[in-house]
């Protein structure tokens, strides 16, 4: 849903883990799931601490990234008019 968030003008957007469980993933072990959630919240905190001039998707790798990657290409990255 990040393209929608950008389209409506949300200024700081962090891609999460999916529509049915944005801050989790039932297929992971409880420990891995919580680590995933923590990474997303930490990414959100980094976004809050960053100045932006326009809707921006924060896809950058976090320092403690491990386990399954939840990054997806941001809508700004694949929005080129081909």
């Amino acid at each position: 849903m990040t393209p929608v968030a950008v389209m409506v003008g949300a200024n700081r957007v962090v891609p999460a883990a999916g529509i049915i469980h944005p801050l989790g993933n039932a297929e992971l072990s409880p420990e891995d799931e919580k680590a995933l959630r923590r990474r997303i919240v930490e990414q959100a905190l980094r976004a809050l601490a960053t100045d932006v001039a326009q809707p921006t998707v924060f896809t950058g790798p976090s320092s403690d990234r491990s386990g399954p990657s939840q990054d997806r290409p941001g809508p700004l990255a694949d929005h080129s008019d081909r």
């Binding site: 049915i20 801050l23 989790g24 959630r37 923590r38 997303i40 930490e42």
Partner: peptide
């Protein structure tokens, strides 16, 4: 949306657990 997973664990929607830890 299918709310089964967030009913099982509300933190999958509202991350109170990790926010409190932080």
């Amino acid at each position: 949306y299918d709310t089964t997973y967030v009913k099982q664990d509300p933190h999958r929607l509202v991350p109170v657990d990790v926010a409190r830890e932080l």
